[in-house]
Design a protein around this nucleic acid. Sequence first.
RNA 1: CGGGGAGUGGCGCAGCCUGGUAGCGCAUCUGUUUUGGGAACAGAGGGUCGCAGGUUCGAAUCCUGUCUCCCCGACCA
Length: 534
Amino acid sequence: MSPIRRHASVPFPLNFGKPAMSAIRHALNTKREDDFAAWYQEVISAADMAEESGVRGCMVIKPWGYGIWERMQRLLDDRIKAAGVQNAYFPLFIPLANFTREAEHVDGFAKEMAVVTHHRLIADGKGGLVPDPEAKLEEPLVVRPTSETIIGDAMSRWIQSWRDLPLRLNQWANVVRWEMRTRMFLRTSEFLWQEGHTAHATEEEAKAETMRALEMYRAFAEEDVALPVIAGEKPENERFPGAVETWSIEAMMQDGKALQAGTSHYLGTNFAQAADIHYQNREGREELCHTVSWGMSTRMVGGLIMTHGDDDGLRVPPALAPFQVVILPMLRDKPEDAPLLAYCEELRAMIAGQGALGEPVRVLHDTRPGKAAAKRWDWVRKGAPVIIEVGGRDMENGAVSLLRRDALWDAETGKPAFQSPSREVAAQSVPTILADIQNGLLVEARERREAHIVRDIDTMEGLAAFFGEDRKYPGWVEVQWSKPTGAALEKVVEQLKALKLTLRNVPMHVPPADGTCIFTGDPAVERVFVARAY
RNA sequence: CGGGGAGUGGCGCAGCCUGGUAGCGCAUCUGUUUUGGGAACAGAGGGUCGCAGGUUCGAAUCCUGUCUCCCCGACCA
């Protein structure tokens, strides 16, 4: 068996005469239920989103995958700017000394940093090149794993007075963390993200910013990615190195595992102290700033796949689809194609002239040579929300054949569930269909999540049974706990580790605790999610 | 980093044990016939077998090193 099951290899799975549902000839070889990890990789390759690069842990993001990321960037950036945060850009290289200033931060990242030590290569005499020993850097440069320290440097220069506060910056950038084990989009050595960094006069303001960013991520995830999430505070052991509080949004994947999809950290004055970010207050006294950082990464693309993908490939929420509608003329490579192309072009213009989800509809008239049916399956695997095929007969009837990606199959026949509206009706209904798909994906994901959250387990035995070997994709458990700290928390973490479980977050807006702690037996003070995690 | 597996035309694989002309399927290209649904037939192009050394008359095959990928573990805002 080869390392990666690439999609093109085996044309299609064979299906032996079974009626109805089971006769459906899915567009992927691997089903989610058979091997979720293999399915995930097949979606990425079949939807042409990304591929391995030959550099450890680094991927090439192909146009369809990158197009989805660009849409995420656009929509989140709009939200960031609407909140009054300004974009800026800081260097990729960070002086090593910056990292020695905040002790916990160093400990957290030291083991996974890429370091630049030379600035020149020299021939090794054997036809190769090696770093020139003469060109060794006086002080090594770290490739940023995150930019708190270098942005902190800038903040310390830019902030003098209480009038300079709050200072709220964001940058879109790549970062590098030398992870032991990588998975496309979910954990790559290099990844793309945005990181917001803000400085405030008071703890109160900084905490408000922390919560603002968290709420922004929740809204982005649910409204744009159609990804239902649970916002809450991370337990102490899951905190960002150097943070006072770490908050996250957590999403449930179709295999029941949790994915941290965005984080917001209240850093207290820890980084301000390390980078000397201080200001003169209204009374003329020097005060340290309270800083905050928040981030969302290309990991979100992985979350999208594992939430909305199905056995036919990806389903991209319309808000994020680079093309929301794809028109496929049934070409014959003959002169008679001309009127059909003109008919489709008119359809394209009708659709492009409309708005959906607050933007002009993004429609592609795919006129590449090739059979419409073959191209259709490509677009199904890529997850374009609406596919419209048009043949000569449609044209004669003034109609089109419309296929919704979220309702692909006719269960009766086991064939694609084409509708045949008139061209005008099809064009006019696109905005409604797109909005319906966007909402439908969110509802479907939320219902699936709620069906896989259990809240009535109050013993470790019960927890172990819930996540037992026979339970394939169990889900999450919300338990009550006494919020132990320090060594007592470590003990809990060890207990959970034995079951391959982690503490996710302490959800907001839930009823107060009213029972005993599942771990310690003490009176519980809050509720926390326990799950397997990516 | 520990254990296991794998790198051979674009993709999936066989060949390796037992060294001797680099093969198969899919994809691609050309032609013909088809085509309202994931076409058929015929022909053709494309690989210094991950990389670097070594053994040998001769290495995809044996030996050493190294890089990359996959799975499990450890690690991981």
